[in-house]
Amino acid sequence: MRDAALLVAALREPRSAERLGAGEWTSLISMARAESLMGSLAYRLQGLALPEKVERLLEDARNDAEQVRRQALWEAEMARRALAPLGVPVLLLKGTAYAAAGVSAGLGRSIGDLDILVPRESLGKVETALLGAGWEWVKEDAYDDLYYRRWMHELPPLIHRERDRMIDVHHTILPLTARSTPDASALIADSVSLESGLRVLSPPDMIVHAAAHLFADGDLAGGLRNLWDIDRMLREFRTRDGFWSSLGDRARLHQLGREVSRALRLAEDLYGTPVDRRLAGRRASFDRLFKRRLLARNGWGQTTDKPLRLAFYARSHWLRMPPLMLARHLWTKARK
């Protein structure tokens, strides 16, 4: 199995999995686990006529995803309780947000740390409240701390001392050093309140954030999962009135038009996502490289195409930091 096309095909066209042999199943499962897509795949393939052993593994993955979902929502609830007295808006981001909002991207999705977004001016209060409710710094390290506070879009990570779960507190969705500057106050102003009082991004902003996360905020590791989120959300939101035009408006407002267009093209190419032609734009020469990078995983679950991955890694740091700062960052890291 040369690349992750097998996984993409199973997600895109579940019935294609009914023809797989035992060896291909083993490969598919390894790939799905490596890409954090096992739970999503397990829900996608639910109800098909599959070998008994496969059924059992998929059922285990669905049960596991349900536990993950429950624990993530609980972590959000505990953060809500700690922050409620402050009266500031608290937005859930990424996996926890999808689960809490009940969007289909949340179905079976892996969820790691709790990501929340709060107004920048409330960061100090929020930090104090969390520290008072059992969270503590993961590492005491002056340089990293300063680096986070000055340049990143979040507080240094905190971990809860009893529950052993991490929280990332963001005040915007990209590092301050990134070339795009999303409008954080507009993200909050347009956010949607859930029954619990916690909030999530509006549907268009959710997709803009997912696209930003896919390209600008990393080296495309875990990209197939992030792109799957986008596929699920686009399919769910596209029937709403004026969705495509508001997605375009929000992407421009947050200076992420290029990222959103590319995400749309890649989602269409890999997952067959129905997209707005005008917003997706014309195919760009780099699209092929992005696609190759996303598929760089073999049937043993190993990453492949090392030079390409290195190129994307360097690119991700370049995108985050102006060159002089990058040099300083790498220098300080190297000396430690």
Partner: peptide
């Protein structure tokens, strides 16, 4: 194994 494997070790 008489079918797909539960786990892969590398």
């Amino acid at each position: 194994p008489d079918g797909p494997c539960d786990f892969t070790v590398r």
